[in-house]
């Protein structure tokens, strides 16, 4: 299996709570960070552990893109998402009907095939259970 962003996300079974984004939890202050980092961004403690974040997130803002890139067929939607654990990042947003997207919408992390058979990427999709 090939991942589009091997240092950015876990597939199912790779970490507790996966699939989701790779993150770091500070043992000292509890803050979360995106990616596996050696130092807590808030208290600078080095007592940190890898964790899965972003299985759930909130849509902060989004834009519909009309120029294809990275094997994404335009038009497609890119959003700024705020993970339940705190960190924000940009991510592709998939919705059956993009018109239903709105700020504050609850999202969940989803694995998708991207670019080639067996190549795994991700997107956030509306979290029907939270609607």
């Amino acid at each position: 299996m090939e991942k589009t962003n091997p240092n950015l996300f876990y597939v199912s079974g790779e970490a507790e709570g996966a699939p989701g984004l790779k993150g770091t939890r500070c043992v000292s202050c509890g803050a979360a960070a995106l990616l596996e980092v050696p130092v807590c961004p808030v208290c600078l403690s080095r007592n940190v552990k890898s964790t899965c974040i972003g299985a759930r997130a909130t849509l902060t803002r989004f834009s519909t893109v009309f120029h294809s890139a990275d094997s994404f067929e335009a038009p497609y939607v890119i959003g700024q998402v705020h993970t339940a654990e705190g960190p924000s990042t940009f991510a592709p947003i998939l919705a059956p009907n993009p018109r239903e997207l709105r700020q504050g919408m609850k999202l969940k992390f989803s694995l998708i095939e991207r670019g080639a058979p067996g190549r795994i990427g991700f997107a956030y999709v509306p979290d029907k259970e939270a609607l």
Binding site: N5, R61, S63, D70, I78, F90, P92
Partner: peptide
């Protein structure tokens, strides 16, 4: 690139979201 590559992100979209804010 670990975070922003292969997700369809381009700088016009980053700026679009910032401008919307």
């Amino acid at each position: 690139t670990e975070v922003m590559s292969n997700i369809g992100m381009q700088f016009a979209a980053v700026d679009a979201i910032r401008v919307k804010e």
